[in-house]
């Protein structure tokens, strides 16, 4: 069931047949078709062995309507293992019905089962939709700061 009980939602591991839907959902949000990127992501996160990689899909009435992708990352600049979310998407017309919350909760449950107690992500400061969502799930600024520089 979606978090607000609007309609039933089921969460499952992504399969190879979900590639087209994921590419479409991402394109509808970002305006860019990134098929090669998602093919690589599927090769790493969908095909076994998973090795701490999670690619979950939300299904409504048998159709994939959202996804979340994460992996367990360890010891980057001394950080103990944590769950790192790097993609989250829900079909535009179905947003604000709690689907992302169900995906997020299921992801946390699976990370917890794998012995992970911290979840992290990095989102552009201008991406208010995703930042607000992660905030609403209780996430706050963490102990790492993103830095960048244009390479001359």
């Amino acid at each position: 069931m979606s978090a607000r009980g609007a309609f039933p939602i089921s969460i499952r591991n992504a399969g190879a047949a979900d590639l087209d839907t994921v590419v479409r959902l991402d394109r509808e949000t970002t305006g860019i078709e990134k098929r090669a990127y998602w093919q690589e992501a599927f090769a790493r996160h969908v095909a076994p062995p998973h090795n701490g990689r999670l690619f979950l899909v939300a299904e409504k009435d048998g159709a994939a309507v959202g996804f979340i992708v994460a992996e367990i990352r360890a010891w980057e600049f001394g950080s103990p293992p944590c769950g790192w979310v790097f993609a989250l998407n829900v079909a535009r017309g179905l947003r604000e019905h709690g689907i992302a919350s169900v995906l997020y909760d299921q992801l946390c449950a699976r990370l917890r089962a794998a012995g992970i107690d911290t979840i992290r992500t990095m989102v552009a400061v201008t991406n208010k939709v995703n930042l607000s969502f992660f905030r609403s799930m209780g996430m706050t600024s963490g102990p790492y700061i993103e830095l960048e520089k244009r390479i001359e």
Partner: peptide
Amino acid sequence: DELTRAVLDTITLRTLLNAIER
């Protein structure tokens, strides 16, 4: 300032109320 604005602009009243309850 940019970070401050980004934090304040992504915490809704509902999110704050939930955090206060927790």
